[in-house]
Amino acid sequence: MSGRSSGGGTRLVPYLQVAPLALFTIAFVGIPIMTLLALSFWQTDGISIYREFTLENYRELFTSGLTYRLFYTTIKFALITLVATTIIGFTCSYFLVFHVRSLKWQIALLLVCTIPFWTSNVIRMISWIPFLGREGLFNRAIMSMGLTSEPLDFLLYSQFSVVLTYIHLYTLFMIVPIFNSMAKINPNIIEAARDAGASGWQILTTIIIPLSRTGIALGAIFVVTLVMGDFFVARVMSGGQAASVVSAMKNQIDNLFYPQAAAMAILLIVVVALLVSAILRVVDIRSELAK
């Protein structure tokens, strides 16, 4: 009974309280997305935009082999990053929740993982350059150890360095939600499973992984959308070799082909939405979050 709203003619209060957020979100999230949608159906000659309906932008998009290559590369990056961040995030959270005994240490170590989140992504990205370059620390190290005589070239300005940077930037988006899910697991359940004779591996696969799935799904949504929306890492860390969907779109914008860019944007939003709903199909996050 206590959860019910209080009286006093306050029916209007939540509307007043939420009005700033609602107005803002509609005006600056809802309408801009609608604007993109409208723009994607308008015509352009590369100089000015004509507000006349056309499907030309989409036709161009879908008939170009480049589109498919871009999406292939971007989704490939997203999936590799997803797998790597999930494994790292799960392992680290598992260590923090089930092997670090005091709550104080758990929180302190989690904080260590999350602090970089509050610092500049650009800086964190370029910090790999002196490490991975031809003259970088890693190449010097393996050469001085005699493991190779020539510096390894694939380390920097390659797909490898792009994915490595993604993992570096986005793993903490996995750790925090998985940690949260795992911390909610009642230790008695694990004791009970052990009493029932379950091995460590069985406990992991039948209890911990299923009960962490909300966190994994939440982290997956973050990682997938961040990678799919990136252009800067792909551009800088690939040394201009690998193009992502957004970096191609950025080129169109720089060349003032706004309607084409908008069509690409809408397609990307649809693809991201499909990926997210695929994740949501596995786990109903909203009902799990309410717990």
């Binding site: 979100t25 600056f28 999230v29 309408i31 801009p32 997305i33 604007t35 993109l36 723009l39 949504i221 973050f222 959308t225 799919m228 929306g229 990136d230 252009f231 957004v246 779109m249 950025k250 914008i253 706004y258 860019a261 908008a262 944007a265 990307l268 939003i269 991201v272 997210v276």
Partner: peptide
């Protein structure tokens, strides 16, 4: 949506609006 739509796309939408 505001959180998961790629940021640059939202930026494009806002600037066009």
């Amino acid at each position: 949506i505001s959180l998961v739509v790629p940021g640059i796309l939202l930026g494009l939408g806002i600037s066009q609006m």
